Amino acid sequence: MTITAREASKLFNSNKLSALADGDYSHVEKVAKGFLNQEVTNFNVCDVYEHTYKRLSQEYRSEYYFKNTIARRRLLGRHSLKTATMLSEFRVGRSKADCVILNGKSTCYEIKSEYDTLNRLEEQLNDYLKLFDEVYVVCSAKNLDSVLKMADERVGVLELTQKNYFSEKRAATPRIEPIDIDLLIKSLRKEEYLELTRRNTGEVPTIPNSKLVSFCKSALKTVEPEKIATSFIEVLKEKRFNDGDLLNVLPSSLINAAISYQFSSPQIEALKSIFGACKESRCISHISEESSLSL
């Protein structure tokens, strides 16, 4: 039975990958047969993911595809995992930033694919501009004109072209106003805003939990804005680092999955085994072909 690109794209969601890690290959088989027309008895898991991803790049560029392209071209294409970290769905006020890359600066990427509406865009960008050094909207051609008109002039705009490259239509203007401390505290986990306070004031408050937020806000508002901006990045990079071992094993189509999804330790090891075996199989096959050619 033939399946749609939308159905095939579920191959990349958290539930299907968790199921695969737990030994359930049913959706991989379904996609292999119904989307790629491969014999179910003769498929390679890595190939199913890579070939599906390639077709989706032309037929169904979902939010996942945008995020994965940002991870490939911006995180790994420009930086190293030793110096940069990517966060997914980072809460900022009433909004969630789709992608945030932290290196020497914080850069936010808000995705507007052709399947997204722009109803909350202005509100989202207003939040992001109070926190990050640079803010970009990444959109398809369908939304490009509307985004350019709606987005604050400080916001950069990137179009994901039909050839799947980013075309910069407007550069982001670096933030010059101090970070909004109230918004910052709401965006961080408890251990993160406590560490931020300790680094900037030298104090580790031993007060009731009900008073912690108020204490940290007051303390951080006395610190130079430049120090806040720098230590905010440093703390998040330490607390929310990307799993380089998993990233190195998974195919390029699953970079965002390694960054965005939460897997149990056994699931991580299972995914490493599944995709590591695929790569090893390919290497052996390649060596065998070269050997036969040399005879």
Results as ranks from 00 to 15, higher is better:
196 L>V: 02
22 D>M: 08
86 M>F: 05
79 H>L: 10
264 S>Q: 08
174 P>L: 06
282 R>M: 13
128 Y>C: 06
71 A>V: 13
197 T>F: 00
56 L>D: 02
40 V>S: 14
193 Y>P: 05
13 N>P: 02
25 Y>R: 14
178 P>V: 09
73 R>L: 15
223 V>L: 05
69 T>A: 09
195 E>K: 11
33 K>H: 12
163 K>E: 13
121 L>A: 04
207 I>G: 02
186 K>Y: 05
214 S>V: 05
13 N>R: 08
166 F>Q: 05
189 R>W: 09
274 I>H: 08
271 L>S: 03
87 L>Q: 03
139 C>T: 15
187 S>N: 06
261 Y>F: 11
161 T>F: 11
203 E>Q: 07
139 C>Y: 07
283 C>L: 13
226 E>A: 14
189 R>D: 02
31 V>Q: 05
281 S>C: 07
198 R>P: 00
108 C>T: 07
117 T>A: 10
146 S>V: 07
193 Y>W: 11
139 C>K: 10
103 N>R: 12
246 L>Q: 07
282 R>S: 11
201 T>G: 01
23 G>M: 09
28 V>Y: 03
243 D>A: 04
91 R>V: 10
48 V>A: 06
195 E>D: 12
168 E>F: 00
124 Q>C: 04
109 Y>I: 03
281 S>H: 12
179 I>C: 01
135 V>G: 07
100 V>I: 14
197 T>C: 14
273 S>W: 12
59 E>P: 00
116 D>Q: 10
149 K>R: 15
251 P>K: 06
226 E>T: 13
94 R>A: 12
98 D>I: 10
228 I>G: 03
133 D>C: 05
232 F>L: 10
61 R>K: 15
162 Q>H: 12
53 Y>E: 01
267 Q>T: 01
118 L>C: 08
9 S>F: 00
208 P>Q: 04
248 N>M: 11
103 N>L: 02
158 L>E: 14
113 S>N: 08
137 V>N: 04
270 A>L: 05
204 V>P: 00
129 L>V: 01
112 K>E: 09
59 E>Y: 08
285 S>A: 15
115 Y>Q: 06
71 A>F: 08
127 D>L: 08
73 R>N: 14
263 F>D: 04
100 V>D: 09
180 D>Q: 03
157 V>L: 12
276 G>H: 14
128 Y>E: 02
10 K>M: 05
74 R>A: 06
149 K>C: 00
161 T>N: 09
74 R>G: 01
148 L>A: 01
154 R>E: 10
117 T>L: 10
265 S>R: 14
204 V>H: 00
265 S>P: 03
194 L>P: 02
136 Y>A: 03
293 L>H: 10
287 I>L: 15
225 P>G: 02
142 K>F: 00
201 T>M: 03
119 N>C: 00
178 P>E: 08
215 F>S: 01
247 L>R: 08
197 T>R: 10
200 N>A: 00
269 E>S: 07
279 K>F: 09
129 L>A: 02
188 L>H: 09
66 F>K: 04
139 C>D: 03
32 A>Q: 11
268 I>M: 04
77 G>D: 07
198 R>A: 07
96 K>W: 10
235 V>I: 15
178 P>Y: 07
81 L>V: 11
60 Y>G: 02
229 A>I: 02
41 T>D: 15
258 A>D: 03
233 I>Y: 07
125 L>D: 01
94 R>W: 10
93 G>E: 06
106 S>T: 07
163 K>Y: 09
46 C>Q: 15
5 A>D: 14
